[in-house]
Structure formats: C-alpha cells, structure tokens
Design a binder for these strands. Structure first.
Length: 264
DNA sequence: AATTCAGTCAACCGCGGGGAC
DNA sequence: GGTCCCCGCGGTTGACTGAAT
C-alpha cells in the first residue's frame, strides 16, 4: 500500500519559494514559534507541505544562520568531522553553529570532495588514494591528527566504525592540510565538548539581553541575520507585519538598518 | 550573440526513528 | 507488541548562473 503522503498532494505548491511565501512563514513562526510543522502551512496560509516549510525555515530563513561560503576553519572542521562521522551531515552541522546540514552537504559535494581528491585523499575513506605509503609516514601523520583519544570517547561506538581518519598523508599539501587541521584543534575541541552549542534553545527568536552579543563561537547575532534578511530579500520589516516583532526586536532591526545605511 | 557545458545550491523525495496511543 | 503519525535525515534532482566555445 505504501506510505501515506506527508500532506495532501492536491493543491500543494512545489518549487522555489516566493518572497510572499517567505514573509508568511517568517511572520507565522516569529509570532507563534515553531510548532507542529504539519499544521504550519494551514495556519500560516501557505499552500505548501509542512515538510517544505520546515526545510525552508531551517535551511534558509532561520535568523541564526550564517550566510556565505564556509571559512577555512569551518572547512577543516567539516573534513575532520566527516572522517569520524561519515555522511551524517546533521551531526556535522550541529558542531558548526549557524550552518545547516544541507549547506554542509552541498559544500562537501561541490568543494571539499574535489579539494581532497586533488591532494590525493579519498573523500569517502579519508585515506590516501595512493596506498603505497610507508608506515613511518602514516604514523607520523597520525601523531598530529586530532582529536586525541579522549575526544573519541565522546563518540558513540558506531560513530567510530565508519571510517578512519586521513592518516597516511604523504605529500606536502597533505601535511599542510594536517597542520591546518591541527591548528584548529582548539576550535574542534570547543565545538566537540561544548554541548551547549547543540542546544536548540541557543537561538531564540527574540534576542535576550545576554545573548545578543554572545558571539564567542561564531554564532551570528540577531542583528547580522536580520541585516541579511533585509538585504538579501526584497522586502523589509514592514512587509512582515510589524506586529510580529517585539519592541526589542524592532530596536535591533532598526539599529541594524542604521548600521547598514551608514556602511553603504 | 547564441549555444553548450559545468558548477552550485535550493528544494524534493523516500526512509527510518521515536513517541503516543 | 503493533500501529499510526510526525519529524528529521541523507540522497538526489533540477533550476539557475556563469564560463567557455
């Protein structure tokens, strides 16, 4: 019989989201918060499936998202995490605040994969494509490869099983890569151990006084993201329906607009 | 200028996990 | 324990864009 469709296919719109739909979704979530996604389209007046709404929100509209290409440090972190976790993009994404699994997956497939292949590393196994590497070299590379054993303890046993790290690098470029990864160890450890980063509550819709500037780990702040929303979308805050913003949010948005105007 | 090709990324699809009953 | 429902995940697709011819 097969599974029931996630929503009534009739009358459900597909394809790229329009500005109007984005506005409706943002307005709804800022007003009501995230609730049952299945109910969101109906309540928000959207002819979309709940899944599509969730995806649009989590991958594109969320105010805590960083925009733009992954930084060098983030890229190295992704490589390291992929070596440990495999294609578990959501797990990887949870270690990179402000990045989505979709974004990381896309970046992996379009950029990192090629990069690794170029320097002779199999992007699946993280082992050198040329297996003729002396054990000496591999052991020296291993010494440098983070995280250390104690980090592995954090992982579930099944997370260890998938692949081994790119441990046998031999080329100069490989060692540069390794050095780069090692230099990011502090970042990796911070992200690895700081479970608070994984807490969804970190990004509250309404900015609280003490988290507006809480950007120590690269979390985008509320203003930055509002700036993005206002810059990159063809609509302003008034289009959202002013009522959906609290006074604090409005102040933040207005400050942002002011800053942005000064910049340009 | 027109066409082709490759790269990028937003969005969709199907599946599995987990909670509720 | 079985079934249903919802959510989230990972793989894949296809539209769009810019470069190359």
């Amino acid at each position: 019989m097969g599974r029931q469709p996630c929503c009534d296919k009739l009358g459900v719109k597909k394809g790229p989201w329009t500005t109007e739909e984005d506005k409706k979704l943002i307005n709804f979530i800022l007003t009501n918060g995230q609730c049952c996604w299945r109910a969101v389209p109906k309540l928000a007046g959207l002819r979309r499936c709940g899944k599509s709404c969730r995806l649009r929100w989590t991958n594109y509209l969320r105010p805590d998202l960083k925009r733009g290409l992954l930084t060098e440090a983030e890229e190295q972190l992704v490589i390291d995490l992929h070596a440990r976790l495999g294609n578990r993009w959501s797990k990887i994404a949870s270690r990179l605040p402000g990045r989505t699994d979709n974004e990381i997956k896309n970046h992996w497939n379009t950029h990192i994969k090629k990069k690794l292949l170029k320097i002779g590393i199999d992007p699946v196994t993280h082992e050198p494509l040329n297996k003729q590497v002396s054990s000496q070299e591999s052991s020296s590379a291993e010494e440098n490869f983070p995280p250390k054993a104690n980090n592995d303890e954090v992982l579930n046993s099944d997370e260890n099983s998938s692949t081994s790290p790119a441990e046998n690098s031999s080329s100069c470029e490989d060692s540069i890569l390794m050095d780069s990864i090692c230099s990011d160890e502090s970042i990796i450890n911070t992200l690895w151990f700081d479970e608070t980063l994984l807490n969804d509550a970190l990004w509250d819709i309404a900015p609280k006084a003490d988290n507006i500037n809480n950007n120590d780990v690269g979390l985008p702040n509320w203003e930055d993201n509002c700036a993005w929303l206002l810059e990159c979308q063809d609509f302003g805050i008034h289009d959202f329906g002013i009522n959906c913003f609290s006074e604090i949010e409005l102040n933040a948005l207005q400050q942002t607009i002011g800053v942005e105007e000064k910049r340009h």
